[in-house]
């Protein structure tokens, strides 16, 4: 029994660990996609954030400045994507692919010049994003240990759940959100009502980059302690998948990320104890996602104007 509770705690902890960066990026993806811009460049934006976050934290000694700068680096690439797709009417898939090449390309090149290595120097504990509830729970009791396991997470994890709430509120309860969603459904309608579609979309793609950058920074500043070229391998795409899974809604994306995180967490615990082949276990999150899609989710409503460049006639 104690073991089960213990394991459960570890699974939940791992779930949250895996979920966090995905969720930041997925929230970012929501902003862009819902406003009508396909952003498959999330991966590249995360990489930029992952590198910048850890480097800035290393030099300033402050995890929070690093974290913020990670977001800003993502936003920089978001701006690039917005410039191409929103301002210049570029094909969104092609531009996103370019971002996915440029992001890693540029940061790894910088890493090479700065550190003479593709890896950055590992952060000291004080430079990492702190764990908030270390030592709060009494680990001598079963329940306390469970709680200690679950809440051993980094501050970035708690922050992302706050972010989900904020994004949900912004999307569905504010003027900005209503307009944002309208831009993704019917940009011409927005234009006739005096809403500046170009500005809205531009801003949303930048926000998308910022949140993706934060997601990337979580990987290198909380989960790990340094940036390596394989820090971000596919998380961006999983985040996009989670958003499609969640039918382009922030709370849906939350479920998608949690499902994914949970399966990944399960994998870690089972991998240690069950003797099932690790490679097969690693497949679980992906297989489960597909099965859940078939059984429960099905077709999702893609924002009508998603992927279509909006060009104002003069």
């Amino acid at each position: 029994m104690t073991d089960i509770i213990n394991n459960l705690g570890i699974i939940l902890y791992a779930t949250l660990i895996y979920t966090t960066p995905l969720l930041y990026a997925a929230l970012g993806s929501c902003f862009s996609e819902v406003s009508g811009v396909v952003n498959i460049g999330i991966e590249g934006m995360m990489t930029a954030g992952a590198f910048t976050g850890t480097v800035v934290a290393y030099f300033t000694g402050s995890p929070w400045i690093g974290f913020l700068c990670g977001g800003l680096a993502g936003a920089l690439f978001g701006t690039l994507h917005a410039l191409a797709t929103v301002k210049l009417g570029a094909d969104q898939t092609i531009a996103g692919t370019a971002i996915n090449m440029l992001g890693p390309g540029i940061v790894i090149m910088i890493a090479k010049v700065m550190f003479n290595s593709t890896d950055t120097i590992p952060l000291e504990a004080s430079m990492k994003i702190p764990r908030l509830f270390r030592g709060v729970f009494d680990t001598t009791t079963v329940f306390g240990r469970f709680m200690d396991n679950v809440f051993a997470n980094f501050a970035s994890t708690y922050l992302v759940f706050v972010a989900v709430l904020i994004v949900w509120f912004v999307f569905y309860k504010t003027r900005f959100g209503l307009r944002l969603r309208a831009c993704g459904e019917h940009p011409q309608a927005c234009e006739t009502l005096g809403i500046n579609v170009i500005a809205m979309r531009f801003l949303c793609v930048c926000i998308s980059g910022f949140l993706s950058g934060l997601g990337g920074a979580c990987v290198t500043m909380a989960i790990s302690t340094q940036f390596r070229p394989i820090s971000i391998v596919g998380q961006g795409f999983i985040a996009i998948a989670a958003v499609i899974f969640g039918k382009f809604r922030p709370h849906g994306a939350l479920l998608g990320c949690l499902l994914f995180g949970f399966c990944s967490g399960l994998k870690v615990v089972l991998g240690g104890s069950s003797g099932i082949d690790m490679q097969l276990l690693s497949m679980i999150p992906y297989v489960v996602t597909v099965i859940v899609l078939i059984l429960f989710v099905g077709k999702s409503h893609v924002p009508s104007a998603n992927g279509k460049p909006y060009i104002k006639s003069k």
Partner: peptide, 16 residues
Amino acid sequence: MLVQPFTVTENIVLGT
């Protein structure tokens, strides 16, 4: 120029 998944009210007030 109507946003299909929005309600009538949302469409009317959109922008103001």
